[in-house]
Write a protein that binds this DNA or RNA. Sequence first.
DNA 1: CGGCATGCTGAAAACGGTTTCAGCATGCGC
DNA 2: GCGCATGCTGAAACCGTTTTCAGCATGCCG
Lengths: 360, 360
Amino acid sequence: MRDAAVTIRDVAKAAGVSVATVSRVFNRPALVTAGLRARVLGTAERLGYVAYGAARALASGRSRAVGAIVPTLDNQVFAVCIDALQQRLDAHGFALLVASAGYDAAREAREVRLLLERGIDGLMLVGAEHPPAVWALLGRRAPAVPAVVTWTSAVVDIPVPSIGFDNAAAARRIVEHLLELGHRRIAMVAGPTVGNDRAAARVAGVRAALAASGLTLAPPYLSERPYTVPDGHAAALALLTLPDPPTAIVCGNDHLALGALAGARALGLAVPRDLSITGFDDLDFAAYAEPPLTTVRVPAAEMGQRAAEYLAAAAIGPAPLVGTVLEAPVMLRASTARPPSRVPAALRPPRCDRPASALR
Amino acid sequence: MRDAAVTIRDVAKAAGVSVATVSRVFNRPALVTAGLRARVLGTAERLGYVAYGAARALASGRSRAVGAIVPTLDNQVFAVCIDALQQRLDAHGFALLVASAGYDAAREAREVRLLLERGIDGLMLVGAEHPPAVWALLGRRAPAVPAVVTWTSAVVDIPVPSIGFDNAAAARRIVEHLLELGHRRIAMVAGPTVGNDRAAARVAGVRAALAASGLTLAPPYLSERPYTVPDGHAAALALLTLPDPPTAIVCGNDHLALGALAGARALGLAVPRDLSITGFDDLDFAAYAEPPLTTVRVPAAEMGQRAAEYLAAAAIGPAPLVGTVLEAPVMLRASTARPPSRVPAALRPPRCDRPASALR
DNA sequence: CGGCATGCTGAAAACGGTTTCAGCATGCGC
DNA sequence: GCGCATGCTGAAACCGTTTTCAGCATGCCG
């Protein structure tokens, strides 16, 4: 294995210098005279020398790689973050190891361990809620492996900085918008909240806004569904066929909202005339949905960039342990409007044996 | 650095055995008697020992990591593939290093080099077209680093197996569907074709289908746009305001198609009554667009899985160098139908000074 | 009961870099 | 012209693990 690979020794020999000099040429060029440097660089290039990262990492104690664990890459919002993270990391000379944990705490702990074995110099995590084993593992190495949590503004009980936004506040604002429009019957299709502090915070935000208007949120007006389009579709159908259907549905993310939009359409409802629907994330299809989706813009790329900057800095030396709370603005578009003055025709009981109640 | 980290030596000392034995316990447990194995495992657990990957890689010559370079992670289709790749790799004990090259050959070559420096044991690439430097770099190590190309069925001129699908054939089939419906004025909004064999193959496939019916494809009916929703929107607008607008628009991917759908809507056109639109990729929003998008289902996850299987096998020992061509079926949905019998009202010139030509 | 496989275990040599430390010029000041 | 500080360069130690090789029991067979 690696038989024919050209090593630093080959370069040194060919250039007539010591391996120390070759190493210096690449790592601290200022320490080598210009002439020698050029000669070494030349022979290295000619021989096609590629330094072997493992040896470098072993000798220097730094792998120049950072890890990132996201719930899933399937969701574009995480993919965008990872893309930004990688590009920024690249600019600092770091490679990125990614793993997805599928919203599973045990699997996440396992991935953290595997990444740590790889000698990563930093780690990006999503959300504030992680098994204690994760923090223990991170502290094991000395100095402790720097880490950041993203997607959250929680600053308590976590030994690492967070770069995120306030999920609860964003959810609250979008519901306030609905309340201002006059909605009172507001339902929510949330993502799974167990072990997911972001999803839970969004529910809490919705509750808070509702509570301020004397409203509450409980099943069947609150349902939890996996973050998929078909689930949003099914959830909307269930909600809208309730005896007392909501006039607005707040969705935990854009996938659920897109499904809800389709569900409403399937029932013959016009959005936003008959029903208002909101999303969360502002994925690229949100603004082009029919109708364009009112949603919360999540700063996915910016979180990735800032996480990269922090981790790159922290890998070199001590970096300030600051928490960053980014903006997550509500994007008002065409899927929300004033509630219908009466129950939409499409939702009225098919038989008109009780017209009075249907028109109430 | 790593001062307090517990090493294999610490475990050996604590367990009263040699480092060789500890190493064997983890790598070839069968060589160690059960009792000893249990003792070593116990102390390792107690001490919180985590093997250091760099040292392992250096000593064993394998990093147990593979790399993947995609054009971008922004596009869900690649993210899905990477997610599947990572999960499958994980099952084989491999970590995944990802990088995005932004549809830029030079940047890709650079990323390949960086990944190789990291000592990856395998590499997944997208598409068949890569700078020669890439292949040279891959062959530099001995034995050569195994690689796979995905998203393509090209089998010529590439020293590595491909796991993909036939872009041209899929594009051809979707156009044949349009032709069968009776369309003759078929336009295409393609992705950028320079350095992108997939985009080029899709154009070629459209051309081939058209040619079989005596039709051609050329600007302004053929335009190239970045793969974004707004670009699809703009392109559709440009196409539909042509003196002789198309009755069907074939889009290079679903993002462009979603934008085109919105563009048609903006002009007051009903899809598919007044205009047919097709996509490519079958992202999760495609089936829930308004109307649901006729598109090509790209086996993104399956390519990721198969690439993982191949690379994991090839990293261990020689693996069969087979090319795999997966299915990429056309998903017939509601965005395609027979062409309108006359120019849609919305597209007719506002002034009726030439009614005869408008009704032609 | 002795000799010989057989099977575990430990000592030590890689693996390919980085980095410390010492040595050797070189250039400067006197 | 000599001594000394300065600045490059090279020799060698070291990073943590795997793996080869030899040695030592042990068990089996004759």
